[in-house]
Write a protein that binds this DNA or RNA. Structure first.
Lengths: 144, 144
DNA sequence: CTGTATCCTTAGGGATACTG
DNA sequence: CAGTATCCCTAAGGATACAG
């Protein structure tokens, strides 16, 4: 399993982004973290795509090392770990939403809630702001 | 080398997009096709990332099968083939630009021309329109 | 519950030679 | 020029068991 970012192939910004998300799993984990607002290891494990526990662990580690998410113990349940997106992770939301829009346009079987798709098309920036504020809220709520 | 799209893992739109661009090379080829406006096999081969000819051929085939680009013979030079993005391919431009924006923000070494980065930040839609119109122009120009 | 540790398979990819 | 055809190898990924 991959534990480090591969060496950069060029100084192109697209290539740079691919060094992080150019595989089958990283964006799935980020989707669950940011859009689905999952917080616990078990939640990610339950995704429809059936990610294996070792793959999930390696991706969480990679994303943490890349500064895309942070980990901390749940203050209430000491055995649980809470994953939260960082600013750098949240900043990938626009890219993800454009991919959602693209898929919704070309794949009829794609199962994004129509309301979400409409929001992304008409009111993307407000949706991004909402996700960001929810993330900030969750962080302060569980911290105190 | 991969010749067909892998079976879909779920009906999630992000997962669907990853079925196409969830690897290290496909988006690089699309970048060259759409943003760099490359048209010939040799142009793609010359990219900084040093793609191998068999990988390139498999990606071009895959993208054609997916309806993201079209191939045709150059009417002037019968031995040459011209690749052009389709509507479906061009529609990935917004996603690519968001990735460029993200990389430009977090990677100081990223080599997007500053003017391009600024345009994407301030005037993304106009840039997209420009690329689209250039693509359409090229198509009609070489067809007649 | 949150991960590690193994084992194993396969597919993705690099190098290179070659063809119409 | 525009690809194919091979060979080879590694890393990515799946399954499963188990540990703190």
């Amino acid at each position: 399993m991959r534990q480090t970012t591969p060496p950069r192939r060029s100084d192109c910004p697209i290539s740079y982004a691919l060094d992080f998300v150019g595989d089958k799993w990283t964006l799935i984990v980020l989707r669950d973290l940011i859009i689905m607002r999952k917080q616990h290891f078990r939640d990610f494990l339950g995704a429809d795509e059936k990610i294996a526990s070792n793959i999930l662990a390696s991706r969480l580690k990679l994303l943490e090392a890349a500064g895309m998410l942070s980990r901390r113990r749940d203050p209430a349940h000491a055995r649980q770990v809470i994953y939260e997106p960082t600013e750098k992770g949240l900043d990938l939301l626009p890219s993800m939403l454009e991919l959602v829009r693209w898929s919704a346009k070309y794949d009829s079987r794609t199962a994004a809630p129509p309301a979400l798709v409409r929001r992304i098309a008409e009111d993307r920036d407000a949706y991004i702001a909402e996700i960001r504020s929810l993330a900030k809220e969750a962080k302060t709520a569980t911290r105190k």
